[in-house]
Amino acid sequence: MVRVVKRSKAGKTLVVDVEFVGDRIAGIVISGDFFAYPEEVVEKLEEELRDKRVSEVGDVLKRHEGRVVLVGVTMNDIVEAIMDAYRVFQGS
């Protein structure tokens, strides 16, 4: 499990805990003190990211853009955090 903690431009904390198997996401938890409306979309996002290749992350998150209002973080912050986690995983 790789953990990345980021501070967003809006001053919120974003934490991603990702388990990788090769270039696939075996499991992910997105947490922090941000806001999302409706809240349940973040859990759906985590489910959809499971078993996806890292290269598909951007597309998966883009599909959710119109379904959720994020406050304090952006979809791009989440993509960057996952990519940072993958870089840490590759270097480990």
Binding site: V15, V29, I30, S31, G32, D33, F34, A36, E39, V42
Partner: peptide
């Protein structure tokens, strides 16, 4: 705690 926070964190 906030909805998205991990309690132990």
């Amino acid at each position: 705690i906030g909805y998205f926070q991990r309690i132990r964190d």
